[in-house]
Amino acid sequence: MKVSAFIPYWLDYQVDISGKHKNLKKLGGKYLINYSIDLLNSIQEIDDVTVYCSDESLNSYIDQELKYRFVKRDKCLDDKDVSIDTIIKSFLEVNNADVIILLHPNSPFLSSNTVSDCLNQVISGKYDSAFTAYSFQKLAWFKSKPLNYALNEETPKLKNLDPVIIEESSLYVFTRESFTIHNKRIGNNPYVKCINHFEGLEVESDEDFEIAELIVNSGMYPKVEYAKI
């Protein structure tokens, strides 16, 4: 069974007020892409790591000691209206993996234990896919209506609420078979790995970068070892 990890990358993704691309800002002295490759390199079950991007200049931002291969994708896949499912389908045309790990490069504090757990749950055959998520045990609303409680009943205690699960949107694991059947990264029988907000922090906005820098500088999260210069 071949396990391949891939990082879909947009080099020109979102430009901030300083003119810098969001994906090319440094955190703890490293570009975000290096955290993701370093994490995937640490997991023995992964046979290869691919960065899937339309611009080869990205290689100059990746640390030389990291193990990966660059596969150039068609520029048309950079269009903002192209779905991630279309990008996955394109990747599977150039890779013969049986199990695929999709990792977006904006969550530098994801742990190897989380990735390995999701991967092993899928490899075991018990689940056809896996993803990271947040669990909220709060009074929730959706489309102007209560989602997990009723207004015509006594307000429940938070501890008695059914939690609301929200995809963290950084890590997905799935089989080729499942994707071929459903054309989605999540199949009919997914394993949901709930993580905390430190581990799942997505570094997108300037505020996210400030929070991530505080985490790195404080040493409050174990994954910051990847940020050492």
Rank of each mutant, 00 (worst) to 15 (best):
I33K: 04
I7V: 14
E225W: 11
I17R: 14
V49S: 05
A5T: 04
W10S: 13
R69C: 10
N95M: 04
T86Y: 11
D16M: 03
I43N: 08
D55Y: 12
A133Y: 06
I37K: 00
F136C: 01
T86S: 15
V94Q: 08
R185P: 00
L201T: 02
E225A: 00
A150W: 09
T180F: 05
K228D: 05
F109C: 09
A133L: 07
F6A: 00
F6D: 00
Y221P: 01
I211V: 15
S57R: 15
K193L: 01
S57N: 14
E202P: 05
S60A: 12
T180M: 01
T155K: 15
E202A: 13
V3A: 02
C53K: 04
K67H: 12
S107Q: 14
C76V: 11
S57A: 12
W10L: 14
E154M: 10
L110N: 07
P190C: 05
P156N: 02
L110Q: 08
K72T: 08
L103D: 03
S169E: 12
S90T: 07
V203K: 06
K145I: 03
Q121E: 14
Q137G: 01
S218K: 03
V115S: 11
V71T: 12
F174E: 08
I101D: 09
P146K: 10
Q14L: 12
P146D: 11
E204Y: 14
F209A: 04
V115E: 06
H21A: 10
N160I: 03
L32D: 09
W141T: 13
S18A: 11
D48F: 06
S4Y: 09
S4L: 01
P156M: 03
K25L: 13
S18H: 13
R73D: 02
D16L: 07
Y127M: 04
K22P: 00
V122P: 10
N152Y: 09
R73E: 01
I7G: 05
T175Q: 09
I195P: 07
N183D: 13
D208W: 01
A97T: 04
V94E: 13
D208E: 05
N59C: 13
Y52H: 07
H197F: 13
L32T: 11
V99F: 11
E93D: 11
E45V: 02
H182K: 14
Y35Q: 05
K143L: 04
R185M: 15
K184N: 15
I100M: 12
K2Y: 06
I88H: 14
A150K: 15
L92S: 09
A140H: 10
I37H: 00
P105H: 04
V216G: 10
C53N: 10
W141N: 10
V164P: 03
L11V: 09
I46A: 08
I84P: 03
Y52T: 06
I215A: 00
C76M: 11
R73G: 01
V192A: 02
D78Y: 09
